[in-house]
Design a protein around this nucleic acid. Structure first.
Lengths: 154, 154
DNA sequence: ATGACTGCAAACTCTTTGCACAACA
DNA sequence: TGTTGTGCAAAGAGTTTGCAGTCAT
């Protein structure tokens, strides 16, 4: 069984469990997202999936992403600021770096024990399902520009 | 010297350092934010500050918040999802819990060592200025509603 | 056959921009 | 007095909603 087929089966199983319908839109969008190496916006996901299924619409992308998140197949990445929401394939939660100046969000691998944070949330009657680190500051590009302003290269 | 006066002085000093002007709007907004116990949206900050300075406008709130963040007097809290941006007074970075269902963001105290994450960001040529934990899941209220659906109370 | 799902269009929320006037330095 | 900063109005980006028609079951 191919990897794609296995992913399809997982989606189909989760849909059936809940009595929801298996539609071409859901299959195609799920594949598109699982095929991405990094997070993407709803628009980018639409652009990726559109060639495979013409007439696919942005409202459908949003509603499908909401569904896939409910089914635990997609996550929204945290960010600071007001840009578009970033969605990412489920794989193990990982850290993110968010640039305070340009808003860019990048993945970050860091070995941190987040157990205490999850425990604290549980103690406050929340039902935690994941935890990650968000590091903020200036991204490489913004940091370089900032330095250039303070001390212009001769 | 009162606490408020000390905060004013800090703002004034940072503004002067950069040759920026000290205006009533900046003083009032800074006080409003420092006076809040939790994070707030731009609208909420406007509502809090308006009685003290009539005609204060939302664009001014946004531009002032951007400035205060640049001066390291205010931070934006991370969130998942598409709601309004949350601003919080500078105090030591702390964790947040974000509800996947309703989008609510709550403060969270957790004892986690984020040093490795900051180091990883620095190694990737970013200029990190802080790090925090974001725990996701369902907030107490959404978790209760979810449980009510699966097993209705008799 | 029937109800869930989709696509389209329009509404909505939040944030940013453009420009004339006000006010700090 | 010369800019910087503000307020107003309008535009813009991103997301959500309403509804008629389509399609999975």
């Amino acid at each position: 069984m191919t990897d794609t087929a296995a992913q399809d089966e997982l989606l189909i199983a989760r849909l059936r469990e809940r009595g929801l319908r298996v539609t071409a839109q859901r299959l195609v969008l799920h594949r598109a997202i699982r095929g991405m190496s990094e997070h993407a916006t709803a628009e980018e996901i639409l652009t990726t999936a559109s060639p495979l299924l013409p007439n696919l619409s942005l409202p459908t992308v949003y509603s499908t992403l909401e569904l896939l998140e409910e089914l635990d197949l997609v996550r929204r990445a945290p960010g600071i600021g007001s840009g578009p929401v970033l969605y990412e394939p489920r794989p193990e939660p990982h850290g993110h770096f968010a640039c305070r100046r340009c808003g860019r969000v990048e993945d970050l691998d860091a070995d941190v024990d987040l157990g205490p944070a999850v425990a604290a949330a549980g103690a406050a009657r929340m039902a935690p399902d994941g935890a990650e680190v968000v590091v903020t500051g200036l991204c490489a590009q913004c940091a370089a520009e900032s330095a250039a302003v303070s001390s212009p290269t001769p």
